[in-house]
Amino acid sequence: MQFFWDGLIGAAELLAEPDPLVLGAAWRSLWISTLAVCLAATIGIPVGSLLAQKKFVGRWAVVVLFRAGMSLPTVLIGLLCYGVFSRQGPLGGFDLLYTPWAIVIGEFCLALPIIVTWTHSAVSGLDPRVAETARTLGAGWLRRWRTSLSEARLAITLALLTAFARCIAELGIAMMVGGNIKHQTRTLTTATALETARGEFDRGVAMSLILLVLAVIVTVPIAWLGRQQQET
């Protein structure tokens, strides 16, 4: 236990005098996860709502595939991305391996199934009168689509926050395709793992605390939105 308290005190000292390495890792974690979730939302929200509204052969197979994607281990996604971005891989020529962009793409793959699945279930769970009312009032497909997303906006926001929480806390993808390179691809999770392995327990705890703060910042709106949704 003393070991843990010493770590906490060391972490407090480190946080009081911000270390550029720690701050850099925190900033990198933030922008990588935010970008990955934004990209996943750009594709995932339309795909999820189309899966809910358009009937086509094999629709349920696609839905099940995305649902299965939600439980993919991050190391598996990291491994697949590694295969794709390595020299011999299909995208090897782009030299993306061990860059932050590789982590963004990996985290995009992590966030996409979450956003698609949640958007699909939010839109398909809407009252059928939403689409009927919009249609009968003369709304075209684009306005009807926007209306359905607006009616499901709480659940969709919840999906985005959950995807962000998953991305910022993941380790497997950042480690495998990022390589944990100092000042380049080191994120909070990979740095925490590294510092702990090196015996720098206080630095590990300091970075875990920053991760914890970020997780709380994300979790509070998730809980609040969840409550709002139950009330409406």
Partner: peptide
């Protein structure tokens, strides 16, 4: 045309 036939449900739905 369909877009000019406005139907109000028995229990109407109001958008958020």
């Amino acid at each position: 045309p369909l877009g000019d036939r406005v139907y109000v449900h028995q229990s109407p739905y109001l958008f958020r």
